[in-house]
Structure formats: structure tokens, C-alpha cells
Computed example of a mutant assay.
Amino acid sequence: MQINRCFSGNEDKDNHITSLQQIKTVTEQVGRGDENSAPAQTAKPTMMSLPPTNMAALAGPIEPSFDSGIRRTMSHRDVRSELFLRSFLTWSDTIEMMRVAGLPAVYQSGWVYPVYIFSFISLLRIIFTPKNPLLSSLGVLLQDVPFFFLRLSIIVSLGSITPVLGLFKNILVTLSYIYFNHLTKLRPFSAFETSPF
């Protein structure tokens, strides 16, 4: 690397003009030092080490984009609305459990304590940032699985106090999490994932 200083009357004497030379990679310096004296080539940036045929599979389908009209308005996406939707589903499930705790049949029995405890535990996942990779698994483990067993137990012992729709939501979220994160890695289920549709 060469450094040339600019010395002019009005400019600061600490200004530097630099020019970059070709730099050898570490592999070229170590590997070619003993065995071959061929001239070193500059390192070329690569996007990925996968062959180009797999690049399209990783990128996913190309979604259509609309330039004008009602389709452009309808296709507009905002991450904030998706985040609000996920937060709404989280809070509405917990709020429904707190509503159940306020019913006389529940708060006069011993079921009020498990409802309060599991409702508090379900909210512990809000301490994580929205992009945290643990967030989806903690949502299932801290909210949907305990609420499923809690709602099922309350329905069996006290009758249909809590809506059955909440029970189905907990079942659907738990099963979809298990299927998409664990079962699709098995051979019988991975055949569906490799289909072009």
C-alpha cells in the first residue's frame, strides 16, 4: 500500500491519499509458499459456495409486483402490521385466559391459580426482540402447549367456560410448529417440501 502526502499551503498536513494494491489471500500465501511459485491472483468475491442451479431454489418464488392501480394498493406490505397481528394473537389468548379467571366458577375454585401462573409465564416471551430466533419456539412452549392443557382441563372439570375455539387455536399452532420445524426433516414428510408446488 502506498501513502502519498499532500503538502499544499492551505490544506492540513494530516490528509492522506491512499491507493490499494492487489492483496493475496491467506490460502494463497500459505499454500503456494512452498510448493508453487506461480504469481498470486487477487481474491474475487463470491456470493455463495453453492452451484448456480441451487441458487433459484434458495431464493424462492419470484412474487409479482404491480406498478399502479388497485393491485398496487392491495399488494403493499408493512412489517409493522404483521408484527401487530402476531402481538394481537399473543395478547388476545392471554386476555381470554384472564377473562376466564374472572368467572365465578373459576375464581371460587382452585383453577384460578394455574390460570394466573400460566398467563404470567406466557408473557415472559415478550422480553425477546421480534427477530429473535427463539421467539417462535418459546411462543409454543410458554403459551400454546400450557394453554392447551389448561383449557382442556377446565373444560373437562367445569364445563365449557372457555371457548373451544381457543383450544383449537392452541392445537393448530402446536401441531403446525411441530410439523414444519421437526417432521419435515424426516424422509416421508420431506417429499412434500421438494415438490414444485
Rank of each mutant, 00 (worst) to 15 (best):
Phe7Arg: 09
Asp12His: 14
Asn15Met: 09
Ile17Tyr: 09
Thr18Leu: 11
Gln22Glu: 09
Val26Asn: 02
Gln29Thr: 15
Arg32Asp: 02
Asp34Val: 05
Glu35Ser: 09
Asn36Val: 06
Asn36Pro: 03
Gln41Trp: 00
Thr42Ser: 09
Ala43Ser: 13
Lys44Asn: 11
Thr46Phe: 10
Met47Gly: 08
Ser49His: 02
Pro52Ala: 04
Leu58Gln: 14
Ala59Val: 06
Ile62Lys: 14
Asp67Gly: 15
Gly69Tyr: 03
Arg72His: 15
Thr73Ala: 11
His76Trp: 15
Val79Met: 11
Arg80Thr: 12
Arg80Met: 05
Leu83Met: 13
Phe84Pro: 00
Ser87Lys: 07
Phe88Leu: 15
Leu89Pro: 00
Ser92Ala: 13
Tyr107Ala: 01
Gln108Asp: 13
Gln108Gly: 00
Trp111Val: 00
Val112Arg: 08
Pro114His: 01
Tyr116Ser: 00
Ile121Val: 15
Arg125Val: 02
Ile127Phe: 11
Thr129Asn: 10
Pro130Leu: 07
Ser136Thr: 03
Ser136Phe: 03
Gly139Leu: 01
Leu142Gln: 08
Gln143Trp: 06
Arg151Gly: 04
Ile154Glu: 02
Ile154Met: 10
Ile155Trp: 04
Leu158Phe: 14
Ser160Glu: 13
Ile161Pro: 00
Pro163Thr: 14
Val164Cys: 02
Leu165Val: 15
Leu165Met: 14
Gly166Asp: 03
Phe168Pro: 01
Phe168Trp: 10
Asn170Leu: 04
Val173Phe: 13
Tyr177Met: 03
Tyr177Asn: 09
Ile178His: 09
Tyr179Trp: 08
Phe180Lys: 08
Asn181Arg: 06
Asn181Ile: 07
His182Ala: 01
Leu183Cys: 13
Thr184His: 01
Lys185Ser: 08
Phe189Trp: 06
Phe197Ile: 15
